[in-house]
Design a binder for these strands. Structure first.
Lengths: 244, 244
DNA sequence: CATGGGATTTGAACGGGGTTCAAATCTTGG
DNA sequence: CCAAGATTTGAACCCCGTTCAAATCCCATG
């Protein structure tokens, strides 16, 4: 039945419209100002139609976060294939993500809000799974690089730590820095500026602490800067969308 | 005017009552279930009275977070004086905080929610400043230890990095791990368990990467475990409230 | 081309809960 | 003891998010 098929496609197109418009509204007016009725109006549909797609506002927000996470994951998916050593590829992820955070300033805030228990609890199981699934490639990319590093002996074969658990460190460091950087006035209060530069240096410290070769001393600014520049150049060449 | 004085004290007592009761309700029924009218009723006051103290619900939540942050800071304030090397005291902070997170399971969630832009934007300037101020001793404690470590040569004298910026690494790592650990089902989805154990190991990696002496290889589980136990014992002895 | 019934869309009405504010109550100075 | 100011009260208000009965659309069928 061709009709069925077309209707399905139209339905999906409409869902995409809702999600994109919502993202646009969030970007321009902030998360606070987003109202279901206004979103519907902006898309030229009735409020009720929105609820054919999302069973709550939180659900919609989760869908927006999922969409952007997929874009983010796309960049990560390609990093393992860059012509760089394993350690530099690990750094490439951090750099790509710093760029992503800067071109999508609301993304981390939105994700943080959505994964907050209060909100998370009012999203549907399906949406939650979709968001987790969208992030999967990121974890896979990290895991792949850690595996390769161990195979190469760039990284000692740890006795107990799984690949995912190894990747958890940079992941947590990154997440934490994003959280701190996003909390209005927090870092300013401690007179800390350029959090992302510190993220890079602390990432080097972390990797060096795990004896990930070739080791880079986080305390040598010129070496760190040179490595950052080198990796950025490769990123620019092979993944121009992530223009760091 | 003695009367003025007493009224002021009574007012403060009432504010404390509101904050404590709110915390209690959050603990028992969750953040979602907290309602201004029910809180007022539970304290045997009218709803309007609440608004004499907090100019919005978000303001109240910020106040609750501030109160708990002060308790958390109290533990941190005492750590610099523990009879341990600088590096072990740094670890002591992480351990104390892991314990704090476990005895106050809602604290991180609440803080995360409050510092989310959407909520943060609807709190009053005063409350925001109070929350930042409450956290100040934590940063001071970290700074003090970093300073001492440099003075001792436990930590190389970095050219560019301020003490606060040095402490930013463990701080971000810690914050990030708490965020990840709190996102329902996230770590499970990647088959990662016992996040706090990993936090400890990654913290060692980070400190070792900065060449903080005496270096500990994060990849030697027995050494890591012994150090954890040693520091925990000191914590138990000197700061029993933080019973790790 | 007309028709009817199921599917979809609509948007006004509903409901819950945060916030307000006029009336009630209390406090205090004379 | 009274009056005026300060404080407290809680019902009413209002702003959304959500629902659902009515309107509209779609399309298979005769």
């Amino acid at each position: 039945m061709g009709t069925e098929n077309r209707r399905q496609r139209e339905r999906e197109a409409r869902e995409t419209l809702f999600i994109e418009k919502a993202h646009e509204l969030i970007r321009s007016e902030g998360l606070l100002a987003l109202q279901m009725s206004r979103l519907a109006a902006a898309c030229e549909y009735a409020t009720g139609t929105l609820y054919q797609h999302f069973n709550s506002k939180e659900d919609l927000l989760a869908a927006v976060a999922t969409r952007t996470t997929r874009q983010r994951a796309e960049v990560f998916r390609r990093i393992p294939r860059l012509p760089l050593g394993t350690r530099s590829r690990m750094l490439a992820m951090v750099l790509a993500d710093i760029d992503f955070a800067q071109t999508n300033p609301d993304y981390y805030r939105l994700t943080q809000f959505v994964t907050t228990e209060v909100v998370w609890a009012s999203t549907s199981e399906v949406r939650r799974d979709e968001l987790l699934e969208a992030a999967q490639p990121i974890s896979e990319a990290v895991t792949a690089i850690v595996s390769e590093a161990r195979a190469n002996q760039d990284l000692p074969l740890a006795q107990e730590l799984g690949e995912e658990e190894m990747g958890l460190g940079p992941w947590a460091l990154n997440t934490g820095m994003q959280t701190l950087a996003n909390a209005q006035g927090l870092l300013d209060a401690y007179d800390i500026h350029r959090p992302y530069e510190h993220l890079i240096r602390h990432t080097h410290a972390l990797l060096t602490g795990w004896r990930w070769e070739p080791r880079i001393d986080p305390d040598e600014p010129s070496v760190v800067r040179a490595e950052t520049e080198r990796v950025r150049a490769v990123l620019r060449e092979y993944i121009p969308e992530a223009n760091p």
